[in-house]
Design a protein around this nucleic acid. Sequence first.
DNA 1: TCTTGAATTAACAAAAATGTTAAACTGAAA
DNA 2: TTTCAGTTTAACATTTTTGTTAATTCAAGA
Lengths: 205, 205
Amino acid sequence: MELKNANTEQLILDAAEKIFLDKGFSGAKTTDIANAAGVNHALLHYYFHTKENLFNKVFENKADLLLMTFKTSFDTDLPFLEKIRITIESHFDFIGVNPKIPMFILREVVSNKEKRDFIIEKIFPRAYSVLEQLRKSIDEEVGKGTISPVEPIDLMMNIASLNVLSYVAAQVYFNFGNENTDELNKFLSQRKKNNVEVILKSLKP
Amino acid sequence: MELKNANTEQLILDAAEKIFLDKGFSGAKTTDIANAAGVNHALLHYYFHTKENLFNKVFENKADLLLMTFKTSFDTDLPFLEKIRITIESHFDFIGVNPKIPMFILREVVSNKEKRDFIIEKIFPRAYSVLEQLRKSIDEEVGKGTISPVEPIDLMMNIASLNVLSYVAAQVYFNFGNENTDELNKFLSQRKKNNVEVILKSLKP
DNA sequence: TCTTGAATTAACAAAAATGTTAAACTGAAA
DNA sequence: TTTCAGTTTAACATTTTTGTTAATTCAAGA
């Protein structure tokens, strides 16, 4: 087997990832992807046949990554509120290293029913177990009087909303993902602190 | 002057709005817009010359609407926390009647620097005065010990994040904007209540 | 009713974007 | 060294999308 093969296939995939993340499916052009990868654009079709096929590879990859977001640290034996804090912070940091994923998924999902269904089918099974596990912990803590009652889905959505839009705002105001300024970093650490505080306060009895 | 004129121009604009809101600039096709408007697609060019020109009309219109979102009710003489509650609820309800606007603006803004700059130039002047007015009220209340200190920008972002993503989730899970089920309405009223509670709790001393 | 100018249409043109093909190249194994 | 399979390229083909033009319709005022 040749090595060029795996190499250029990966080159194309990397370029596709970069451009699809920025522009979405309809905004990205296969010729731009080929150019970015430094290859003849026929090669793109040779390896991936269609634009949609190439896109799906990127999309599924990123969807998986997004789901890992909520690999909550609930199997540790830390106090509940500590686990929540850690969940929020690691979710925030995860987005920090993958800042374009949430908007990428949302963009396709709101404008494309197939993608919407795909994500729902992927998310529901996983989310269900996470949410039920969370419900148990919440009930326990509510019983102990440590926290006030909350629906697991609300808690998760609150965390995701605050964290995701913190980064979207950072991309818009500070051009995050392309530049990195002190102001940006200050903004992000302020948001991180804020998000933890807001969620923890919302759980107070 | 003929009356067809204003009429079909508006027909095209309405169709464009619908399709651009769903698909974004690059996902929308001018022929689809013309079809949706029930007119020959040459008419679209006759009235608006280019796709971009037509899009900008829609975009600027929606950007204005989005900014009106935060026409806070701060000139009333209600207690501070009541004003906050009303702000949250009316923001939530505003999105309810324009559910696709936030994602529409975000989608273009994250993938297009010009649109990003356009929005920033529009938002900053207005946001600045709102935020400074809010800062005054916050300082006052903090002085009275009614609330704990918070940066105005954080408070606003918290509200916007929770409300916007409530509706994005509703679009994804419940196909909001196209269908209207009991489950959806239950979800939305639960989210509205949750969002108010989370923000008000976050302000507790 | 005749003229005028805007509105509308069909037909065409150009550009952009996706996809295909056949031939040339490459490197490893027979 | 020849052969073979996978890789790469240039050139071409198709489809989609945007934009244009010239001829036609239409409604209102002279």
